[in-house]
């Protein structure tokens, strides 16, 4: 028996389609590996080496200050439209708006506040970090740091990581307040639901709060690390900075959505 005529390994349609799928997968896998490596290094430097607390405070101020108005606007409008839509539908189908506020509060904690806030932070802060760090890379300042015995991760990433994590949690709490108040406003003005009826915490469980914290924490870790990683992998002048900034916001957004999915599922199965 003779072997069938061999096709050159890299040209058959089968291997081409495998390459088409495998290529991106490998790339994604490589990126993920680099991101996790950066996370481990960041945590290592955080716990084993002195932290530049002044830089942390500076970064925290930058992040918090610059995002406050942004988060307020976004969550305000979101709260208004959510209540508007839900109340309208609820009136038609259920007819009773008693529990509107209570359910809204639950949903805020579980889902909308941490996730939308994180997406907004990814937009505002993620691009900011990637742009800053990316510019430093392409102007060789990161190399200069290394030459002067300062590790870029300890010097640049750790302060942003700590500040980002803290601020994400804080802003998420702030988001709950803003969004709820906006919804309360709409419910009161357009649907005659008094604020006292609307402000109803009876349905809130510990599970909701735990889910909230889990998500805020996860997002707060993901966004700075992914953005810093995007920034540090910049190359090639101003194009590189633009590419790094884009990569940061895309990767952060995907990560947030994916983590949301995972954590929502987890909460559903284990907490409720």
């Amino acid at each position: 028996m003779s072997a069938p005529a061999a096709q050159t390994p890299s040209s058959g349609p089968m291997s081409r389609s495998l390459a088409a799928v495998g290529g991106p997968l490998l790339m994604i896998g490589g990126e993920l590996r680099d991101i996790f490596r950066m996370l481990f290094l960041t945590l290592y430097y955080l716990f084993r080496k002195p932290v530049r607390w002044r830089a942390v405070v500076e970064q925290g101020y930058e992040i918090g200050n610059r995002s406050l108005v942004f988060v307020t606007l976004v969550l305000g409008f979101l709260g208004m439209i959510l209540i508007y839509q839900s109340a309208y539908q609820a009136q038609q189908i259920v007819g009773d708006l008693q529990l509107l506020g209570a359910l809204f509060l639950q949903l805020l904690f579980r889902e909308f506040a941490p996730t939308i806030t994180a997406l907004m932070i990814a937009t505002r802060v993620g691009t900011g970090i990637a742009a800053e760090v990316g510019s430093m890379v392409v102007t060789e300042q990161v190399d200069a740091l290394r030459m002067n015995n300062a590790d870029p991760i300890q010097y640049l990433v750790v302060p942003r990581f700590v500040a980002g994590l803290v601020m994400t949690v804080v802003l998420s709490v702030f988001a709950v307040v803003v969004c709820f108040l906006a919804g309360m406003f709409v419910a009161d003005r357009l649907f005659d639901v008094s604020p006292t009826t609307f402000f109803n915490t009876t349905l809130l469980t510990w599970g909701d709060l735990i889910a909230f914290l889990m998500k805020a924490f996860a997002y707060g870790i993901a966004v700075p690390v992914i953005s810093a990683h995007a920034g540090l992998s910049a190359f090639g002048g101003s194009e590189g900075v633009g590419a790094a900034t884009t990569k940061a916001v895309v990767n952060c957004s995907l990560a947030v959505v994916f983590l949301d999915f995972l954590l929502s599922g987890f909460a559903f199965v284990f907490l409720f």
Binding site: L73, L119, A131, V241, T245
Partner: peptide
């Protein structure tokens, strides 16, 4: 190069706000 980064930052922020307001 710094300007490009800042422009991208402003761009996504304004887009996001617009999306929610329009919504």
């Amino acid at each position: 190069a710094v300007g490009v980064g800042r422009a991208v930052n402003s761009s996504v922020v304004f887009s996001a706000v617009s999306i929610f307001v329009l919504d």
